[in-house]
């Protein structure tokens, strides 16, 4: 029961992470499910010190598997694709800024994107992010700086444009 509660505390975090990776509500929902399923499945095999980081790691792997699968079946499953568009009601509720930021982050290189999402959008420490992505700490830091700079540049660019338009 303890574990259930511990997991429950991170449902929203995990959902947000998977949403920010997939940019889709239903996909994120499914992947959260999958992540918890795997978390329970592999529980005995791994010693967990940091539940949050571990869950994020599982979630990241779930997403990687998902996107690989996605590439393979993209042709045959077009119909399914259409059904997964974010539902209209959510879209109305959703303000633009998060989506804009996500779009900006997704223009980055894959590696930079993963790091920026973890370190900035989800406030993980450098070490945790390095563990999750299985990456060298220094490499991670340099990628992060580069990623951040690009994002800031894009954001400033847009601000200027918006100012001019208004």
């Amino acid at each position: 029961m303890d574990l259930d509660e511990a997991y429950q505390a991170y449902v929203n975090d995990l959902y947000r992470y998977l949403f920010s990776l997939s940019k889709e509500h239903y996909t994120a929902e499914d992947l959260v499910q999958e992540a918890f399923y795997r978390a329970y499945l592999h529980l005995e095999n791994e010693e967990i010190l940091n539940i949050k980081a571990w869950l994020f790691k599982v979630a990241y792997r779930v997403f990687i598997d998902y996107s690989r699968k996605q590439k393979r079946v993209v042709v045959s499953e077009k119909v399914g694709e259409e059904l997964q568009i974010t539902s209209p009601e959510k879209k109305i509720l959703e303000k633009e800024s998060f989506r804009l930021l996500l779009d900006d982050i997704h223009t980055l290189k894959e590696q930079e994107r993963d790091i920026v999402l973890l370190c900035d959008l989800h406030k993980m420490s450098y070490q945790e992010a390095a563990d999750i992505l299985e990456m060298n700490l220094n490499t991670l830091k340099s990628h992060l700086l580069r990623g951040r700079r690009k994002i800031i540049a894009i954001v400033q660019e847009r601000r200027k444009r918006d100012d001019r338009e208004s």
């Binding site: 259930d4 929203n12 959902y15 947000r16 499910q33 992540a35 918890f36 800024s97």
Partner: peptide, 26 residues
């Protein structure tokens, strides 16, 4: 982040459901 939390958060009931489903499947 704040905006997202406001619009996309799961209720506690939903959280429990997700956890439970994952656990049962496992």
């Amino acid at each position: 982040i704040q905006e997202f939390e406001e619009t996309h958060s799961h209720s506690e009931k939903e959280q429990k459901r997700i956890i439970k489903k994952g656990k049962n499947t496992a």
